[in-house]
């Protein structure tokens, strides 16, 4: 057929360069959440006086730092096709333990390192059962949610543990650096590192590969179990960081902190266009998703509505955003 060696030049030309529209469609999840975010901001800017003021916006970022940090890690977890339901419980455990450690006289830098290590170990244990024992992530982390919260309650007896307000520890949650709240700065650094890791490193590539086709990624010579183990270590560590920031900001460690936090985190990630089935993730989407959740909570309070409206509205927004994603972008993005 073809005479020149080593050539199968017989492909019919199916040439079509990727157009701008293709790129918009391919990033459909991010586009729709960006739209939602802008609409929410405009709505609250118009309907309330206080929303669009610098102190309020900085406050939103300050309060949403734990959400942003954990959602960044959760993006990795969900992109592998997994889930981590235990993040709220890890947050509570590390919040209480950091308060308890400070009360017991542990120097604050050591307390922080211990908490991060604890979160990492919790992630390691859960990740081991998920990656090496092949137990579904939903079940392992559901058990983790229960067990870890139980430990937090047991340690405190249900009371919250105060942190000395003079301790340098609280600056993590309360300090302002260059006009930006410290928790927000930490969150920004975490997000930048996460963005680079997700999009520009081998690890991020294999996270996507595991979610898209774990067996193909394994056959390509990647140690897929270790990748899965690592994403749970990341989410455990991120949850611990969130717990430290929260207890530092509030000046106490409460075992009831972070009830339902995992749902906010998952909502933020899914709103951002990351697929629960794995293989498709976007950190930019996650940031927008987390900020949307935070803006909604803040704006509804500023609108003098009952704070109990927040979960109702958030739930509806999630449903509508995902529905839009499916309707508007599904056909284009999954052309085959």
């Amino acid at each position: 057929m073809s005479s020149e060696p080593n050539a199968y030049s017989s492909h019919p030309p199916r040439l079509r360069d990727a157009t701008i529209l293709d790129k918009v469609v391919a990033n459909g999840g991010v586009m729709s959440i960006a739209l939602f975010f802008i609409v929410c901001c405009l709505f609250f800017a118009v309907t309330t006086d206080a929303f669009l003021t610098a102190p309020n916006l900085l406050n939103i970022i300050r309060q949403s730092a734990p959400l942003l940090i954990v959602a960044a890690a959760m993006t990795f977890v969900i992109t592998t096709g997994g889930i981590d339901l235990s993040v709220g419980s890890v947050l509570a455990l590390t919040a209480t333990l950091s308060a308890a450690a400070l009360q017991a006289g542990v120097p604050w830098p050591l307390a922080i390192l211990l908490m991060l290590a604890l979160g990492g170990v919790v992630g390691l244990v859960q990740g081991y059962f998920i990656a090496y024992e092949r137990i579904p992530a939903f079940i392992v982390t559901l058990a983790g949610l229960s067990v870890i919260r139980g430990f937090a309650l047991l340690i405190t007896g249900g009371y919250s543990i105060p942190i000395e307000p003079t301790s340098p520890f609280v600056t993590i949650g309360r300090a302002w650096v260059l006009g930006i709240p410290a928790p927000a700065l930490i969150a920004i650094v975490v997000l930048i590192v996460a963005y680079i890791a997700f999009n520009e490193t081998h690890f991020g590539r294999y996270v996507t590969g595991v979610g898209a086709n774990a067996e193909a990624t394994r056959r390509a010579g990647v140690n897929t179990r270790r990748i899965i183990l690592w994403v749970y270590i990341l989410s455990g560590t991120a949850s611990a960081a969130a717990g430290v920031i929260l207890s530092a900001r509030l000046g106490s460690g409460s075992s009831n902190a972070g009830q339902g936090f995992e749902l906010d985190v998952i909502a933020a990630v899914v709103l951002g266009g990351t697929s629960l089935f794995g293989g498709r993730g976007s950190l930019v989407g996650t940031i927008l998703g987390a900020l949307t959740v935070a803006v909604l909570a803040n704006g509804l309070i500023l609108s003098h509505l009952s704070p109990f409206f927040t979960p109702i509205v958030t739930g509806f927004i999630i449903l509508v955003a995902i529905w839009l994603n499916f309707r508007l972008f599904k056909d284009g993005a999954r052309g085959r």
Binding site: T208, A212, N213, A216
Partner: peptide
Amino acid sequence: QDLALCDTI
């Protein structure tokens, strides 16, 4: 046989 490709990459 199943090509072992990652669709979203």
